[in-house]
């Protein structure tokens, strides 16, 4: 899979936040690579440092120590303007809160990040706007303002906006957290399809089981430490640090797996986060009822 050089290299990243007298170690010595074209999920409990990690990769936050190389460029010590230009060319964001410009129509929102790109001509711009609005299935809504769109439609516009600059990497911080189950799912499969079709690298942070189900790379962060690096091998996560865990595609299958594998059951009982990651809580209660909560 990784025939090309990694899009992002994360090397020994630490991030501390000072809160008054206290220092919060949000990230502790994290290293991993993001290969070109992957669909990577950063998982972990709330407050574990997922968003912080994504911000580092997106060059909108700087690590306390360590090095990040994005698209062959070491970003440490770059000026804000240089970082802005780097973002403009190689990085796109999809936000949990969509973050569309409320005064711009859907197509203007998609066009916006291309406006400062002198290398994209006006006709090229217009072409891309309609192409990507079409890709996300919103051609009909081109003239609508964000407040005239549903949450799912807004996120689609945001995705079209993220893709329009043809970035090397799209960073999405919990892109489905503000959407209902079905909408989230369709957004995800759309992103997956785009990932396949354009070979755009996607990096998510998520609590969402389904996102992990679609990912082909998994990075688990707990309390600022990288605990698991997973590579999908068929239906199984090949874990670098831990026992392989099968990837359930449905709740029924998951429960089947749990019945068959006492070791996995024990792991899930012991690790609430893994439990949350792999199941919704009801099914755990159903399977492992008495031991549970």
């Amino acid at each position: 899979m990784a025939t090309r050089a990694p899009v992002v290299q994360v090397e020994h990243i630490c991030k501390d936040y000072k809160l008054g007298e206290e220092t919060v170690h949000a990230l502790k010595d994290i290293s991993f690579n993001i290969d070109d074209g992957v669909f990577l999920a950063i998982a972990g409990p709330s407050g574990s440092g997922k968003s912080t990690m994504l911000n580092m990769i997106g060059c909108i936050d700087t690590p306390t120590s360590g090095k990040i190389v994005v698209d062959g460029t070491d970003v440490s010590g770059k000026t804000p303007d240089e970082l802005a230009d780097l973002r403009s060319r190689t990085i796109s964001f999809v936000f949990q809160t969509f973050n569309l410009f409320p005064v711009l129509s859907a197509e203007e929102n998609v066009e916006y990040p291309m406006l400062r790109r002198t290398d994209i001509s006006k006709s090229e711009r217009k072409e891309r706007v309609s192409f990507f609005l079409n890709t996300v299935g919103l051609a009909k809504y081109a003239g609508h303002r964000p407040n005239q769109l549903s949450g799912g439609q807004r996120q689609r516009v945001a995705i079209a906006r993220a893709l329009a600059t043809r970035p090397r990497i799209v960073l999405a911080d919990e892109p489905t957290a503000n959407l209902d189950y079905k909408t989230g799912e369709s957004i995800l499969s759309m992103m997956k399809a785009i990932n396949r079709a354009f070979e755009t690298t996607f990096v998510f942070s998520t609590h969402d089981q389904r996102v992990m189900g679609m990912a082909d790379r998994l990075v688990r962060i707990e309390d600022g430490e990288l605990t698991t690096l997973g590579v999908r091998a068929g239906n199984v996560w090949k874990y670098v640090k831990e026992k392989d865990v099968p990837i359930p595609t449905s709740d029924a299958e998951m429960q089947q797996l749990l019945k068959e594998d006492p070791e996995l059951r024990r792991m899930i009982m012991e690790d609430p986060e893994l439990r949350r990651a792999l199941l919704d809580d009801q099914s755990v209660a159903g399977v492992a009822g008495k031991g549970g909560r």
Binding site: G58, I60, P80, D81, A84, D85, R87, S88, R89, I91, S92, F93, F95, T97, N99, F101, P102, Y112, P113, R116, R161, T165
Partner: peptide, 16 residues
Amino acid sequence: YGEFGTMRALGDRNRT
């Protein structure tokens, strides 16, 4: 504030 953050995340320079 957040909107301006978005602008910059999307690659706008500070002076923009």
